[in-house]
């Protein structure tokens, strides 16, 4: 938990930095391990139930480990009317994962985003930070195959 302590120290222990600290922990581990939350509760003297409320309130946080490859389908309004539901359906079928979930082999986590602000490309899928505008079924196959 030294990483948690280091992050807390960076914010000089201020309670008001809780969300900023959680964002940093999320960036460090890609999820929020329970031990980290308990440690944070001790360090900041914030009740654990409040930390859980925040951690389950904001979409940036994950309380379970995520897969090796993060697949994000944008379901913002512009993408939605340009066919994001069909794209999401295809991705779900191909990966056999439901949105918000991780495949049992920890290969993929599928998430949806409310708008990534690249509406001109829509419908958009982002995998490991790489953007794909309106990928066809064949494109998807190649993209996923390349993920170990």
């Amino acid at each position: 938990m030294t990483a948690v302590d280091e992050i807390v120290d960076r914010y000089q222990g201020g309670k008001s930095a809780l969300i900023q600290i959680l964002l940093d922990i999320q960036r460090e581990y890609y999820w929020l391990p329970k031990e980290a939350l308990i440690r944070l509760s001790e360090r900041l003297e914030i009740p654990l139930n409040q930390i859980y409320h925040i951690a389950t309130f904001y979409t940036a946080f994950s309380l379970t480990p995520r897969g090796r490859h993060q697949v994000m389908v944008c379901t913002g309004t512009a993408c939605y009317i340009r066919g994001a539901p069909q794209l999401l359906h295809k991705v779900e079928e191909m990966l056999k994962v439901k949105p918000g979930k991780t495949s049992s082999d920890m290969r993929f986590t599928l998430i949806t985003a409310n708008c990534l602000g690249c509406c001109a490309l829509g419908p958009v899928m982002v995998i490991n930070g790489e953007y794909h505008g309106n990928p066809t079924t064949a494109d998807l196959g190649h993209i996923f195959e390349a993920c170990e």
Binding site: I38, P47, L48, N49, Q50, Y52, H53, T56, F57
Partner: peptide
């Protein structure tokens, strides 16, 4: 005591106990 709290948001919001406490 803070043994019980809220989790989630929107229509998924609920109350939950924290077993540790």
């Amino acid at each position: 005591a803070n043994a019980i709290g809220f989790v989630g948001r929107g229509i998924s919001r609920q109350v939950a106990f924290l077993p540790e406490i």
